[in-house]
């Protein structure tokens, strides 16, 4: 087996010493793999994805990216984060920067690319996610779906090894969900390594190599999407899926 691009070994996390948020997590993500994480709210799926670039520190276990142990702080951590793309539920575009500046900021300030170079590749990326004509606007002037696509472009501009998506469509109006999912499907098709927290079953079925089901901070079940959605092995997963479908 090829060595995993991202791997979590015996990861435990507590909030405030009492709330056990992640319980003994072991997870490997291979290069080019698309992993979808699902589970009820409060199951720890967002926490899990946020530990991978240490937006949430862990107390036990180890996380490796491309074989390297995740640094705890400082420049080393910043450098590693540059290799891990992150897309948030609430987009978090830099409110005081234009769309273009949002995408060029990282390449210029972190990767030390020239302005012309950063701009050229940013324009290409904005084209790819379909918001090229909005480049001069500010985030607040765009719809939620457009903002989220810009956020994806901003992450891609760093040429990350792995992309993390933390419920990227949960804050969107229904008519905008598809335009964001389409971009994500294209990325998956292009062989991007992705970890996606989402309830979008359609995305999981057509793009995911693996579905990871979490409950109460632990990974309860993993399987390929077809098997998982058709006949989940655990009672908890079946229970969760039945609620998801009836809604």
């Amino acid at each position: 087996m090829v060595e995993a691009l991202a791997s979590m070994r015996g990861v435990n996390k507590w909030y405030g010493g009492t709330m056990h948020a992640l319980k003994d997590i072991n997870l490997d993500i291979a290069e080019g793999e698309v992993v979808v994480v699902i589970g009820p709210s409060g199951s720890g799926k967002s926490t899990l994805i946020r530990t991978i670039n240490r937006l949430e520190p862990i107390q036990e276990g180890e996380i490796r990216i491309d074989g390297k142990l995740l640094p705890e702080e400082g420049k080393e951590l910043a450098r590693l984060r540059a290799e891990v793309g992150m897309v948030f539920q609430s987009f978090n575009l830099f409110a005081h920067k234009t769309i273009l500046e949002n995408v060029t900021l990282g390449p210029m300030k972190v990767l030390k690319k020239s302005k012309a170079e950063a701009k050229a590749s940013a324009e290409k990326l904005l084209e790819r996610v379909g918001v090229a004509h909005q480049a001069a606007k500010y985030p607040a002037e765009l719809s939620g779906g457009q903002q989220q696509r810009v956020a994806i472009a901003r992450s891609l501009a760093m040429e990350p090894k792995v992309m993390l998506f933390d419920e990227p469509t949960s804050a969107l109006d229904p008519e905008m969900i598809n335009e964001v999912l389409q971009v994500m499907l294209d990325l998956a098709a292009a062989g991007t390594t992705m970890v996606v927290v989402t309830h979008e079953m359609g995305f999981a079925r057509s793009a995911a190599d693996r579905v990871v089901f979490m409950d109460e901070g632990a990974i309860v079940e993993e399987n390929d999407p077809e098997s998982f959605y058709k006949n989940a092995k655990t009672e908890r997963a079946r229970d969760f899926l039945s609620k998801l479908i009836t809604h």
Partner: peptide, 8 residues
């Protein structure tokens, strides 16, 4: 968080 995650 967005700033940190692009490596600032």
């Amino acid at each position: 968080e967005a700033g940190r995650s692009i490596g600032l």
